[in-house]
Amino acid sequence: MRRPALLALGVLCGALAVSGQEDAGDPLLREIDRMKRLLEERIGKAAAEAEERVVLRTYDVSDLCTKLSDHGAPPENLTPSKYDAPPEAEDSEPRAAYDIDVLIEVMKWAVEPGSWEMEGTDIQPKNGRLFIRAIPRVHGRIERMLAWCRKSMDRRVSVDVAVVAVGDGDAALLTNALELTADEAQRLLARPLAAVTLSGFDGQRLGGRAGREISYLRDYEVEIADGAAVADPVTGKVLSGCTAEARACLDGNGGAILHCRLEMSRVAEPLPVHPTEHGPIELPTKRLTRVEASFWAPLGRTVVAGGCTVGEEPCVILVTARRR
């Protein structure tokens, strides 16, 4: 029967039923109860039917499955003539929070394992999306699982690196305490020589530089032929500032292991000049404090990763890791 007709019939029945209520209130209520039971019965049947139907839904999981690449900012060096720096050792393979094949496998054992034996069910990955054929109840659970995965993988971190000059009054920085007090940190961080803030994800190597980059005439490539020679100038660049590479690995308990390569460099200008038969060569001297170490630190607290309070241009490198 068509829906408008059913609606009209229902309206008529309803009106008739209520119009006779003064004389037969109880029969009306009984009629309503009867209809209620009928509806409940139909709901049960419809739910069972819907649950048995395999339907296709797609889920974009590209945000979960994108690989996290490491960023590098290793300390820079002045280099001798004809020097080829060896390649940096890789310390980890880029990894996604969830490899898509593993995600599919996990879905199959975590979300109603028995339901995947039903005919017509399937999970196919295509271009960062999952095409899933499953019964509605399983789709509901998949939605919940993906929401859970997204919440679980949201492990953003930031690492503040600041280099501060220290003087005689800063001996307290070299105490045994792991972290500076809030007052000490505030006082020192108010006067950084250079600072960078890195941000990324848990376990990702982050890198950054900040400072003044100086180009200089570092060498000549000399070529000689029959009766003639030519000097091809070679330029270089040197950074006067802060270089930071850090990998923050959260421990889930309010701390993180930080793998750091930190450097503060200072290049005096003007650069000294040395004469050669081809012309002048500039010979910079780069003063530096470099710390390469790993350590555990509480999140949100400033620690002295390393430094020196005696000698030429003493400074300390402060690190503060945070969970975002």
């Binding site: 609606l7 019939l9 229902g10 029945c13 309803g14 209520v18």
Partner: peptide, 14 residues
């Protein structure tokens, strides 16, 4: 369901 909805409309009106 549609018949129930119609029933309700009519009944509620009165």
């Amino acid at each position: 369901a549609w018949a129930a909805a119609g029933f309700l409309l009519g009944a509620a009106a009165l």
